[in-house]
Computed example of a mutant assay.
Amino acid sequence: MHFNKNKATTGGNMIQRYMEKQLTSLHHASVPSVTNYKDKVIAFLTGALVIILLPYIHIGIIHLKLWVPAKTRVFRNNCSCSCFDTVFRGEYEQPGTTTYKHVYFNATWQTLRIWILTVIFILLAYESIKYLIPLARRRNLRISMFILYVINIYPHYYSWWSYFSYYNEDFYSYYKHHMLFTITELMSSAVVLNLCDVRNEFVSWKILAIVSINIMHVLVGGMDQFIHEVIYGHGARFHKARNIGLMVPDILHVAVPLWAFHKYLVRKELQWKDIFYKEELLMCIVFISIGTLIGRLL
């Protein structure tokens, strides 16, 4: 029997090429999965870090170390609370004078609202970070819009903390007024997030939406507290710091989009009049006017 070495070699090469092809296909198929996994892990860790650090910076550093460092110390062994309904403690504890606990919460609708609000804000924060991480890793992040996202963290956190306080203390004098700011601020942030992706081009309505909302914020905030407490100096230090922290992001949300859009027009060799319609500008003026009026009335 005659054995053909050439045929054997050819068959071996075919098997080798087939195996190499399959392994290459497997490698290429796994790359997106690994990349997506890394994005999710980085987004989770970043989101967790931001959400954990914000209350610590707020209460553990700014309040405890800077704002009210001379607060009277609480002695845990001889303090008590008579306002705790003990529902979540079940049969282990009864209402009355209860011993020290790090966290008290009562079984009320206000507590449920605080929980709902907190969950929503945490999810929104995480989802926004999860959206940004892949953009940054693939160099699709528009820096100018990302700066607006970062600088608006404080106003959003301030809103969450304010609603927490409203419900916790049953104090609703500024609730409707603040709700106007929160809703419009979320709308503005949604557009900013969209424009954080360089693949999403600047269009007139997006720029006008951001600018109009924040001009309204500047006008209402200025007439509301900023001029009285900051410009005229009638506010306490923490009032001034708060008002500046809320006003600066609004001003930047007007200036930065217009500046970025101007650069975009120059690059495209376009004129402002070629992009904006008179109807759009008129709608912006109407929105700013009505929004400012409502903000002053609430």
Rank of each mutant, 00 (worst) to 15 (best):
Y157G: 04
I183Q: 04
I15Y: 04
R267L: 10
P155T: 03
Q110Y: 11
N36H: 07
V87Q: 04
Y100F: 14
F202R: 01
M187W: 05
I288A: 03
K176T: 09
A255H: 08
D170A: 12
C284P: 08
N168V: 00
V87Y: 10
L180E: 02
I120E: 03
D170Q: 12
I59K: 02
I61H: 08
L193D: 02
A48N: 00
T10K: 15
T9F: 08
K273Y: 14
T182C: 12
I285N: 08
G90V: 02
S25R: 12
S30Y: 13
R17M: 15
G235T: 07
I122K: 00
S162K: 13
F276Q: 06
M283H: 12
H178V: 07
E269A: 11
A236K: 15
F261K: 05
H253R: 14
P69K: 02
K263Y: 13
H2A: 04
L252M: 13
C196P: 03
N214W: 06
R138W: 01
L64W: 09
F287V: 04
A70S: 13
L293Y: 15
H262Y: 15
L258W: 11
L148C: 12
R139W: 00
L281I: 15
V31P: 05
I62C: 01
F84Q: 01
K38P: 00
D197L: 02
T184Q: 08
V87D: 04
V203S: 06
H228D: 11
A190P: 03
S25P: 00
Y154E: 03
I147N: 07
T98R: 06
T10S: 15
I57A: 11
K240A: 03
H177G: 02
V256S: 05
H234F: 03
V191K: 03
F261E: 03
F276V: 14
I52N: 07
E91Y: 10
K101C: 08
L219P: 06
L193K: 04
F164Y: 12
Y154C: 04
R138N: 09
V41F: 09
T292Q: 07
R17P: 05
